[in-house]
Design a protein around this nucleic acid. Structure first.
Length: 566
RNA sequence: UGCCCCGUGGUGUAAUUGGCAACACGUCUGACUCUGGAUCAGAAGACUUCAGGUUCGACCCCUGACGGGGCAGCCA
């Protein structure tokens, strides 16, 4: 084995840098943050994480890792009406699973509420914020339109004393939800809507998942987010494109307060074809039972991908492959599939499984004989060793591996034809047994004893090799085959139709009587295998019972024949 | 209609900051193969949205057009 001597390099030098890395490089060059790099992932706990969040986690944690910096997990839990501990817990689990190392710093924006409140009072005292009694409708109307400036609120010029007093009473719960708000006093004529006296606090009498009933006023995203970043001494606050227009406001609050000021940087969120990515739509799929739950293997959620059999390594690699940029794009799901195949090809143990069994009797094989044949566990990795598989007179092969009237180019079993049984012998189809309906139900074959695998005694060449299981020892299992959840590339960008109209009715096929080789009978939930010639499968963590294993198909093998045969 | 952002092979990203467009996926050949997988060798595919300008030279800088996206929650 010959290996090129690759000179040791700084991994950062090698990697083609996205624009965010360029910015950070510059900051380090100019010593903007004293050489520090500190990123964060700030989810709102109002749903499960999906592959788009995974990209963000990989980006943020990846930066911290590459620059020897730090990475925080921080819940942006400023809206008690939508948030739940169930989501908090799942998010922590998912971030950990993906390898995001937050070093135990699970932080909550809600823990900063007192500090935020004090800063708000400071702004009021500076004459930069005021309490507004307008109704939601009035606020909306006075905000103006794309072309017209907004109008100043009637309450815009309240005295500082009155504002301080009212705000304190808001906090004390003297007013009903929605009756008063605190707004920043900026510019109702700004071409940027976000600067038209944005709302800082609203009154919400609701129980918060971690604060309970301590608060009845809650900060809005715009007001809170920069403060959270500032408190945590974040250097680079990375978010998605839709917050671009919010950056002037992010900067305004921090400047007015004169506190530590991180830099907000926006990048394009991940979009994948043949799926939907918004939390709202994913929630709808769950609530309306189009899928099992958030972790249904067809879901693009992190928990769904995990149950499907994806590895964190594959997802991280995928994030690397898709890159980071500012233009919104739709990534082909094929890139994700490549990432998991690439990983599992190297690491998954091979096994034989017959999904749709067809019985084969080898008529010239002794009745009660059982042989133990050697099979390689992973041709990509000799260290994974070998195993024994039983062989006898009766076996099952895949129904699709036999055809009476094959198309040209088909090189599996045909009447009178020969094929190799993987790790066993070459067999010849002598007789086709059919039932009353004319369906093939059994094959009678002969085997050639001189063609045993590994003996090197065979000079026979056959076009095809097929997999099989021995009839007596095979274990019956359930196999779940998944297809894309939607039938069109962009289910949520059709003007006339709802994304639910494009649900793929065949996204799940359950096979309850598949057969696997006996070596897998003690498989544990989460175990991953390649079923030879089929694809990668893992033992389901939800439906597997001591009595019956359930396998999820993670992804098929590439199939150049399937494309041609079509 | 106002403001902001973005336009590079089918897809996602690069281009030493102005020097004749690269990588990955996909596709197609061929080799090899006891997985129609993997691997190996190769190919096709982009006048960098368009039009001007600056320059010896523009994917890169300037101007304009066109196209796409975002913004009028007391959501994030």
């Amino acid at each position: 084995m010959e290996e090129k001597n690759i000179p040791a390099e700084n991994p950062l030098e090698k990697k083609s840098k996205n624009f965010i890395y360029e910015i950070i490089d510059d900051d380090i060059r100019t010593n903007k943050w004293g050489g520090r790099v500190h990123t964060r992932f700030p989810p709102e706990p109002n749903g499960y994480l999906h592959i788009g969040h995974a990209k963000s986690i990989c980006l943020n944690f990846g930066i911290a890792k590459d620059y020897n910096g730090k990475f925080n997990l921080r819940f942006d839990d400023t809206n008690p009406e939508k948030e739940e501990v169930e989501y908090v817990e799942s998010i922590i689990e998912d971030v950990k699973w993906l390898g995001g190392n937050f070093e135990g710093r699970v932080l909550y924006a809600s823990d900063y509420f007192e500090q935020m409140y004090n800063w708000a009072v400071e702004l009021i005292k500076k004459g930069k914020a005021y309490v507004d009694d307008s109704s939601a409708d009035e606020i909306r109307e006075s905000r103006g339109t794309l072309t017209e400036p907004g109008k100043d609120s009637l309450y815009r010029n309240r005295s500082i004393e009155e504002n301080v007093n009212l705000f304190e009473r808001m906090r004390n719960g003297e007013f009903k939800s929605g009756k008063k708000i605190l707004r920043a006093k900026i510019d109702m004529a700004s071409p940027n809507f976000n600067m038209r006296d944005p709302i800082m606090y609203r009154i919400v009498h609701a129980e918060h998942h971690s604060q309970g009933n301590k608060w009845c006023i809650y900060p809005t995203y715009d007001w809170a987010h920069g403060l959270e970043d500032s408190i945590e001494r974040i250097t680079h606050s990375i978010c998605t494109l839709e917050f671009e227009n919010h950056r002037p406001l992010y900067d305004w609050f921090l400047n007015e307060l004169g506190i530590y000021h991180p830099q907000q940087i926006e990048f394009a969120r991940l979009n994948l074809n043949y799926t939907v990515m918004s939390k709202r739509k994913l929630l709808q799929l769950v609530r309306e039972k189009f899928v099992d739950d958030w972790d249904d293997p067809r879901m693009p959620t992190v928990s769904g991908l995990r149950r499907r059999g994806y590895t964190p390594e594959a997802i991280r690699n995928f994030a690397e492959i898709v890159g980071v940029a500012k233009r919104n794009a739709v990534t082909d799901i094929g890139l994700l599939e490549f990432a998991i195949r690439d990983d599992l090809n190297k690491h998954a143990q091979r096994a034989m499984a017959v999904l749709k069994p067809l019985k084969v009797v080898i008529i010239n094989y002794p009745e009660n004989k059982i042989e133990e044949l050697d099979a390689v566990n992973n041709p990509e990795d000799p260290l994974m060793g070998t195993r024994k598989i039983p062989f006898s007179r009766e076996i099952y092969i895949e129904q699709t591996d036999f055809m009476e009237n094959p198309p040209k180019g088909y090189h599996r079993l045909i009447p009178g034809g020969e094929v190799r049984l993987r790790y066993a012998y070459i067999i010849k189809c002598e007789e086709v047994i059919k039932n009353a309906n004319g369906e093939v139900v059994e094959l009678h074959c002969t085997f050639d004893p001189d063609t045993k695998s590994g003996t090197g005694t065979s000079n026979k060449k056959v076009k095809g090799t097929i997999h099989w299981v021995e009839a007596n020892s095979a274990v019956e299992v359930e196999v779940r085959l998944y297809d894309r959840l939607f039938t069109v590339e962009e289910p949520d960008s059709n003007k006339d139709k709802n994304f639910l109209d494009f649900i793929n009715p065949n996204s799940l096929e359950i096979i309850s009587n598949a057969l696997i080789e006996p070596s897998l009978k003690d498989s544990k939930p989460g175990n991953r295998y390649q079923f030879e010639r089929h694809g990668y499968f893992c033992v389901d963590t939800k439906y597997t019972t001591p009595e019956k294993l359930v396998f999820n198909r993670t992804v098929t093998l590439k199939d150049s024949w399937g494309n041609k045969a079509k």
